[in-house]
Design a protein around this nucleic acid. Structure first.
Lengths: 248, 248
DNA sequence: GGGGAGAGATGCCGC
DNA sequence: GCGGCATTTCTCCCC
């Protein structure tokens, strides 16, 4: 145990990423108060001083401290604690460490960023560039229009020249999406002093309740799938070497 | 490298949690297409076959596969790949492993759940039990009304006996919160065939735009703080044992 | 399993 | 920093 604590202190001092498995008990105080009884967990202290407590299952950390926290291992009354605080966020965490099973550390070198294709932004780009997926004669006017009440994905004109707001959702559109659309339509009508602004949701599917609300408000749902890389790959005949190197 | 791959395969077979640091390149194909160029990362394979790829900084994994994925290490043309798939989710990940720096594994035993105080639920409980924090003469009628009108935090009567919907936010209330409230008020009015249902947002603060929208719709904002554990502790004189805290 | 909403959400971008 | 919003959101709860 003592050797492992030495190891951790040394690695913290040298700003390495540290990972250790431990039997521990976690108390967190900050935006909420949380307590996690004794059990085996994997703890990661990252090089930006983020701390993650991971249980053996599950996607998310069960407890965590955000970047720039300060960590210190102390011994009190025969107990070992890893005490972390983040004064800026008013976050405090105390980990009672009963046992350390293994520990490792390393100085990881990585400045890369992930390149992603298929986001909602890509979807609105696709719609703006291919307005016929919305309706025949539809014409895009502006994209990502900033209003005080939010971003309008695509603003356009239908074939009767009605100003039309399009809200895109990468997945199933829900009540929130309809109300987002409603907010934009009302905002445009009031700011421009006009009436009859149309609203469209472009998404693969929509929930039944949301569809009903769409009808209540005279909006229209259009089924559109988000573009994915594979589709782009097929279209552009990119080869594997180019994969990922050209976002958009 | 070969020894470490052996180690990983053995640990996977025995369903242990595995953590290793590696120089790698990640390709993900699923809900989006993603590519992460070569760099040093920490990879965790959990006992439910969740896979996390963590960069040396940042709270969240840069790439991941969800539980019940299938992982396999292969050698192809002299390159080592960790290939993961989750057929149910149509997720695929390929990690080109250039080097493994360290690796550890263990069978972690942990069935504990985190206990949290200070959530929005606690806040609506507090309001229901102490309606005077909303207004003098305010009376709660129902809490967490989930079936009829959606998830209404608190439904009550003001001192003029007006039916009132209260929407709680633990943090700063935004436009979405106002529209959520608006939706509930409209639903109640239409389903009960009445008018004049009042709407209140209870939150510590509210954004300027949201406050303006509140005024437009005749709603009222009341500043209420979410209860935190320490406050409960002080009020109820609970002792640490009662709350499951064996150590401070 | 779908729908709705919270989360110690986090992270991004624009003003 | 605030504000609005997407996220490979995740997670929980209820129907």
């Amino acid at each position: 145990m003592e050797n492992k604590i030495e190891f951790i202190n040394y690695a913290m001092k040298h700003n390495e990423i540290i990972v250790f498995s431990t039997e521990c008990e976690v108390t967190y105080s900050g935006r909420v108060e949380a307590f996690l009884p004794l059990g085996d967990r994997l703890i990661v202290i990252k090089q930006d001083k983020t701390l993650l407590v991971h249980q053996p299952i599950g996607n998310n950390p069960i407890n965590y401290m955000r970047a720039n926290s300060v960590h210190r291992i102390t011994k009190e009354d025969g107990n070992t604690y890893l005490r972390s605080k983040n004064v800026e966020n008013k976050d405090f965490m105390d980990i009672l460490i009963k046992k350390i099973h293994f520990v490792n550390s390393q100085d990881l070198k990585d400045g890369q960023k992930v390149q992603i294709v298929g986001s909602e932004k890509d979807m609105s780009d696709m719609i703006y560039e291919n307005p016929q997926v919305i309706a025949k004669g539809f014409k895009g006017v502006s994209r990502e229009e900033q209003t005080k009440y939010g971003f309008i994905d695509v603003l356009g004109l239908d074939k009767e020249k009605n100003l039309t707001v399009i809200e895109c959702k990468r997945y199933k559109a829900d009540l929130g999406a309809v109300q987002q659309l409603r907010r934009y339509v009302e905002k445009i009508e009031s700011s421009k002093g006009i009436k009859g602004v149309k609203g469209i949701i472009a998404a693969p599917t929509i929930t039944a309740n949301a569809e009903k609300m769409m009808e209540d408000w005279g909006f229209k749902f259009v089924s559109v799938k988000a573009p994915k890389y594979q589709e782009r790959f097929d279209k552009s005949q990119m080869n594997l070497e180019n994969f990922g190197l050209t976002k958009k």
